[in-house]
Design a protein around this nucleic acid. Structure first.
Lengths: 197, 197, 197, 197
DNA sequence: TATGAATGAGCATTCATTCAT
DNA sequence: AATGAATGAATGCTCATTCAT
């Protein structure tokens, strides 16, 4: 009788291991065997669960993207502008998980340059994020938290821009960008861009 | 006497070829022979001018960094806030050269994750950029172009954040981010962050 | 379960193949692919069993050294001076295996010149050989086969010197040094150096 | 008017530089450019004086061989057995020059394994050395310095064997083989092999 | 399912050799 | 004669992928 294995769970574990390794040593240093070791498996096993290395890396990207989307959906219940800013800052490299995820995210910026398919996937994530933020802003405008003169789409792009800009900066220079400084800079930038009425 | 060769110029040419190739196909797809062909040389010649592939890639990074620093120094003569914003937008992927340079810049974000030495080099560039922008802001404050209540260092970080955020976004989704949109978004974000008195 | 492979045995086989190739075409002409072909494997497989080419060559050296040490230990049961000389001559290039091993041994003389680590390894083998021979000589002195006035260590060095000298000579000029001539010369030299009481 | 250059002298200088480099870093680590630097020349210059790398290496071998032959011819005037042994020991690695020459000599042992042409050249040197020693022994026999029962050719081989054996050993383990020990061991071995009447 | 041995294409790197000046 | 830039073949090494067990 074969071992009963939760196929989906194992796939998830391996993708998580890939995120760990990529975040630790960089995507260009990440070999299949490194991921295998991290997942307490072998390269052969990874082949069972993923078409190939590209598919594995894509799953790793999806893993970090889903976390960001999850945080965004959570903040969609926010009824307050400053809460929105606070929640948004949780997607930044403010804790170990965030730092690791951002290093993985960065890795795919580079890959997307030479890989149109990856670029499309990346853009799909951004679209979803933008629509989500835009919707939250419209909700907050209706409840009088954000000035009606703000264009929700443009403001959503502003939020994404600030998040990306700070995420990149803090990921490359974590020593000079502790959580507090990241949050402070984010607030300082987003408050004027999301003015109260 | 051997052929008279300007060693420095040849090195520069090869680095420029590397920027071209990296910007075109991505750093992970860039082979030495691709750069050689672009530079109308051979891999052996590249070895003649660079210690190895890493040294070549570093020279490519420096090539794009120097262009950004050059633009920044040029804008240091600006006597007007909106001119500063306009000049800053020239560092973004608003033309072919800018697009190519940004794709190269992105490539090194990823590499720096797994390469502390590269991270240090990257941070040194950022330091120089930040000091430059901070100085320009202080000058503009003295001439009454920017409100004195603005903290020059924090504002410099804001400018960098916006530039990085938009640079990343536009590089990954150039179709949705034409030059005009980039400039508009940049202005919309930086004007509230660099208020006139 | 994967193919059942005796990792140690496979390593040994590959090292043996390396000895064959080095002995045949010389260490400077020996490419990884030559050894791979001889071992009915590929270069990738060799990497699987050895850290790199240097490790493989070292294993080849050890292979021939172990054979010499084995012969020496066998002769430690000798109860007769002339038997000792006969057994010692078996380590010389008197048969195909011996010729091949000596060509490999020679290869490492050269390498040790520019590689201190290799020199140390070489010297360790010589130490072991010298101690072994010295011990045999002391035993033969006690049983009245060799004159007590002989200094065992100096005599051991003499045996090694004669073996090395003849090994080198015969390896470079096998046509003029058939087995019989080697043995005759060895006897002629060692008998006066290991006089009976 | 071209620079007046003593072609022969320059060739000799370059060969000497090659001996230096080979003796220092080993023949397998010796690149043309290393020899060029040592000779204060360029690789292009070396090509002017030698057909190619092989010809240069051969010239280096000849350089050390000629020194040995020169020492041998000098000792042909010896009228005393122990003087012969003393002079012979001068060919061993007893001083810096001897050590360097022996490391070069060793390098060619290995090369000759995979290069029949080189083996022939090596053997020609050995023939000349053997004939020379044999002649000296015959002279010493006539003058009553060496017992007539000694076979001159076999004794010459013995001398060569001892020299080679000690040369190899001392070259690989110079720390344990100071000049004094080399000479002592040589005397201890050659006196019984070249007995007085 | 899982293993890990084996494969082999791909690539950076080394370096002797060539040759224009 | 001398230089050294350029070439390009040679080769060790990496690592994703395959597959027999």
């Amino acid at each position: 009788m074969p071992k009963i294995i939760d196929h989906k769970a194992r796939r998830h574990d391996i993708a998580k291991a890939a995120v760990s390794v990529i975040g630790e040593i960089g995507i260009e240093n990440t070999r299949l065997i490194d991921v295998a070791r991290e997942a307490k498996a072998t390269t052969g096993t990874i082949t069972h669960y993923f078409e190939g290395k590209d598919a594995l890396l894509l799953a790793a990207l999806d893993h970090v993207a889903q976390r960001i989307l999850r945080l965004m959906h959570k903040s969609s219940t926010t009824r307050n502008r400053d809460d929105l800013i606070d929640t948004a800052s949780l997607t930044l490299p403010v804790d170990d998980e965030g730092k690791r995820d951002w290093r993985v995210w960065l890795a795919f910026f580079s890959r997307a340059v030479g890989d149109p398919a990856l670029a499309r996937i990346n853009n799909a994530y951004y679209d979803e994020i933008k629509q989500g933020i835009s919707k939250i802003i419209r909700t907050l405008q209706k409840s009088g938290e954000i000035c009606m003169s703000v264009d929700p789409d443009e403001a959503a792009d502003s939020v994404i821009t600030v998040a990306d800009g700070l995420g990149v900066r803090a990921s490359l220079d974590p020593e000079n960008w502790p959580a507090e400084k990241i949050k402070r800079q984010m607030s300082a930038m987003l408050r004027p861009l999301l003015p109260k009425p």
